[in-house]
Design a protein around this nucleic acid. Structure first.
Lengths: 196, 196
DNA sequence: CTAAGAAAGTGCAACCACTAAACTTTTTGA
DNA sequence: TCAAAAAGTTTAGTGGTTGCACTTTCTTAG
């Protein structure tokens, strides 16, 4: 028996799978940017990637998901940002830094991508849900950190508010500044009602 | 020419229209409560109201809209709550009172209705959007009251946060108490960053 | 009173995102 | 080499939603 890589074989299969998945995401992005999200049907995307529509939906749960190919470790990163924040940093500040760090990806060339998302209501809503989907996880992390009971309404509210900010600050020029003001408000409110 | 009512005639026609609209809403509610929202198709609702599917969509923009037949003056009421609050009442408090007043409709008999909404994801999302759709209007009202510039991020944030609370407190037993704590947090945050 | 004309309603056909079922092909692991 | 698992395909469908062409009904101006 020869050595076949770390414990579980990566496998030729998984590569193939990732390959078609990537082909789908690439084809979708190209088509969407070229002709607009709403003007392109899933059938065209599937055809461009040379797979059937059914296969497309085995890789992506919805048409919107074709656009946001990330999402995977988003929740884990958020929870980690709260739980493993450096000493002396408040929860609210930790959340702020993590979130503004996300929109800080200054890569030009994805400017048109952002424009498309902002101009397509379906995508904006999906993106917002992408954040708020992790609300309960973040709320739990906050509760654990502060010793509050699970399902504490304040923790849930803070999580919801913090996760709403990406959408709120996106439309603003100078999102950085908007984020700072909004989080300052959250920080003051949280500190006032939750003395450590 | 005989007197035909105030300036614009109500008209037999408008009555007919309102009538079919009501028939649709009633039929929809009955069917949904009986067999579940997802298990009833629009075709059945249309048939129960004895109209065509096309007509149904001339009265309601979507299937979800059949459930929330109100929505009309919601925005106006919100703006009024902010702008015409009694002297000495803060904006945050005014919003809180208006919102908790809304869920205070203790009419028993619509308990099953609320249960249905809570158990149907599509309806929950729609309901939340129903609130947040008025975000900009409320934000403008807040900006006008505080003298802040239009499109001020803080005002938008406060509006968004306040309008998120109905959904946040709905899942909690003792929504009243949850609302009070969450709004206390918002109040402290707003007051700290916006000294009058 | 009557001739537009607007608005309500109808029926049909289609579009689109999405899914279930049954089947073929490929890859894997032993 | 063999059997199971998983990727993929085909087909056919559901369900919400819209466009189009048409009829009916009410309103209103002349």
């Amino acid at each position: 028996m020869e050595y076949a890589g770390p414990v579980t074989t990566p496998g030729r299969r998984e590569r193939k799978k990732a390959q078609t998945r990537q082909a789908l995401a690439d084809a979708a992005l190209a088509l969407f940017l070229d002709r607009g999200y709403d003007a392109v049907g899933v059938a065209e995307v599937a055809e461009a990637a040379d797979v059937s529509v059914t296969t497309l939906f085995k890789h992506f749960p919805s048409k919107e998901a074709l656009v946001f190919d990330q999402d995977a470790d988003l929740e884990a990163a958020l929870v980690a940002a709260v739980r493993e924040r450096p000493a002396g940093v408040s929860i609210v500040t930790a959340l702020r830094d993590h979130i503004v760090g996300h929109s800080k990806r200054g890569d030009p060339g994805l400017r048109p991508f952002l424009r498309m998302v902002e101009e397509t209501p379906a995508l904006r809503e999906y993106q917002q849900r992408m954040w708020t989907r992790h609300e309960t996880a973040v709320a739990r992390a906050i509760a654990a950190e502060t010793g509050a009971p699970d399902h504490d309404p304040d923790c849930a509210a803070l999580a919801r508010f913090a996760l709403s900010t990406p959408d709120l600050i996106a439309r603003h020029r100078s999102p950085r500044q908007a984020a700072e003001r909004i989080f300052a408000m959250l920080d003051a409110g949280w500190a006032a009602t939750h003395p450590d």
